[in-house]
């Protein structure tokens, strides 16, 4: 069927006031995409570096964790890049977990009342935020020597 580009469109995203229920839906998709790409590729690199031996693991560490004081410019830039990736993946993990659990509850037919639905959507965001902050502070103080 030919598509007519001039047909009238129904009101879309821009005309609605954003609510937690709308935001959590698109965040579930966006965080899922981040986990599926950046998250899984880093996990596979980590596993294959372990399987590859001491030298390949040292290469992984120098690019992803810390290159130490003698690291090259590329390695130091890469370290900072992977800190951002780690933060994004950590938040994505908790956000996707929280909204995924919310979906499982919705799937059994519970939690559709307006107030309940709104409350649990907000709870998922707050939980993901605090869990991410906790992990970031834990890693920064225990492994990176910050704080």
């Amino acid at each position: 069927m030919a598509k007519n580009p001039n047909r009238p469109l129904s009101p879309h995203l821009q005309v609605y006031r954003w609510s937690p229920q709308m935001a959590i839906s698109i965040f579930h998709r966006a965080t899922g995409f981040i986990l599926a790409t950046a998250g899984m590729m880093t996990l596979l690199w980590w596993l294959s570096a372990i399987g590859g031996g001491t030298e390949s693991y040292a290469t992984f560490e120098s690019y992803v964790v810390s290159a130490g004081p003698e690291g090259s410019g590329l390695q130091i830039a890469s370290n900072w890049f992977f800190r951002l990736v780690a933060l994004a993946v950590t938040f994505s993990f908790f956000q996707h977990l929280a909204s995924g659990l919310r979906h499982l509850v919705l799937d059994i037919g519970a939690g559709y009342e307006l107030k309940t639905n709104r409350t649990w959507a907000s709870v998922a965001f707050v939980a993901a935020f605090f869990a991410t902050a906790f992990v970031a502070l834990f890693v920064a103080s225990r492994f990176l020597g910050v704080l």
Binding site: M40, M41, L43, L44, L47, S48, I50, G51, G52, G53, T54
Partner: peptide
């Protein structure tokens, strides 16, 4: 490709041990 790669890496390490 990703799943097969990951599974192969883990299986190889489990069956043949870690290289030095």
């Amino acid at each position: 490709a990703s799943a097969v790669f990951g599974i192969f890496v883990v299986a190889k390490l489990a069956f043949t041990g870690a290289p030095a």
